[in-house]
């Protein structure tokens, strides 16, 4: 029971810790960029009000916990809708929403970190900051609900029988403690790796990591639709199970962080690549247009 609790905990709760880490790293990178800007004092003033603060995250987590409770309560009813496909349809919509929000955040961050953004009036900067914070909190809330509700089901299944609780109470508690420890260690390590990478490469790596996390969520949604035959699944293109098995520790981590799939189908591969490439192209086009407009305004184009 101990090992199983740790495994179920890692599979369902690790994405929540990873998203915490990614969002805080994103915030950290943004603050670093603002510190280097010539309008440091203006940014410091605006950031305090519109940043992703710990109190906002705690409040969102509390709301998320309530939503997890109600979602897991209605999951059995939900599963009976749409000819038994209700759960897959609802969760694939939620996964797609997470991806859409992450893509919006990615586009906003990449285009607003452009140097021309610092020339914008403070009101506009505050509005952008507010939007980014709101999107980050929405991402957090959705990830909490989607992944937390599955773990909540596991806990409910254990609480159902008194005999199970009495026999393996200590195993469950210790499992949750160990799971939390592992998740916390991975999240902290990931945060510092991302911050260091960002300092060394100066390439806004964290935005790309968050986008990959979003793609991983989208792939989970796609898999749910394939499972109920709404989207056609084809023969597996290849298998890398012998290199990195999906049920291994590394496999778990890569699946959560990048959407690693040992046996992808053609549909999965197309969606995966498109979901990464399209937002990057759109961000580049927006940046290019901003550059052109700014150059025209200055008369140097």
């Amino acid at each position: 029971m101990l090992i199983n609790t740790v495994l179920v905990f890692l599979q369902n709760i690790l994405p929540i810790f990873v998203v915490f880490s990614l969002l805080f790293a994103q915030q950290g990178v943004c603050l670093q960029l603002n510190k280097h800007s010539k309008f440091q004092s203006i940014h410091q003033k605006s950031d305090k009000t519109f940043d992703l603060t710990v109190s906002k995250v705690v409040k969102t987590t509390i709301i998320g916990l309530f939503l997890i409770g109600s979602l897991s309560h209605y999951m059995p009813i939900l599963s009976q809708h749409f000819a038994g496909m209700g759960l897959e349809i609802v969760f694939s919509i939620l996964f797609s929403l997470i991806y859409c929000l992450i893509t919006t955040s990615f586009l906003l961050r990449l285009t607003s970190s452009h140097h021309q953004w610092h020339d914008k009036p403070i009101n506009e900067q505050q509005t952008l900051n507010r939007q980014q914070t709101f999107i980050s909190l929405a991402i957090l809330l959705l990830v909490l609900c989607v992944h937390g509700s599955y773990f909540s089901l596991y806990v409910r299944s254990l609480l159902f029988s008194k005999a199970t609780i009495e026999a393996s109470y200590s195993g469950i508690v210790v499992g949750v403690i160990i799971g939390t420890g592992i998740c916390l260690s991975i999240a902290i390590l990931l945060y510092f790796i991302l911050m260091t990478l960002d300092k060394k490469l100066k390439g806004k790596m964290v935005y790309y990591f968050l986008l990959l996390f979003g793609v991983a969520q989208l792939m989970q949604g796609l898999q749910l639709l394939e499972q109920v035959d709404i989207i056609s699944s084809n023969v597996h293109l290849w298998s890398t199970s012998h290199l990195i098995a999906e049920d291994s520790e590394l496999g778990y981590f890569l699946t959560i962080l990048f959407g690693y799939e040992a046996t992808p189908s053609a549909m999965q591969l197309i969606v995966y690549l498109s979901a990464i490439i399209l937002p990057i192209i759109i961000a580049k086009l927006i940046s290019h247009r901003q550059n052109t407009t700014a150059s025209l305004m200055k008369g140097t184009y």
Binding site: L87, S157, S161, Q227, E261, T263
Partner: peptide
């Protein structure tokens, strides 16, 4: 009690609610 049908090689993961039938492809 609730169970979850899981298979890494099949890429399938389906929650099985008590006394209910679930369908996957």
């Amino acid at each position: 009690s609730v169970e979850e049908f899981d298979s890494f090689s099949l890429n399938r993961e389906k929650v099985l609610f008590p006394k209910q039938k679930a369908t996957i492809y």
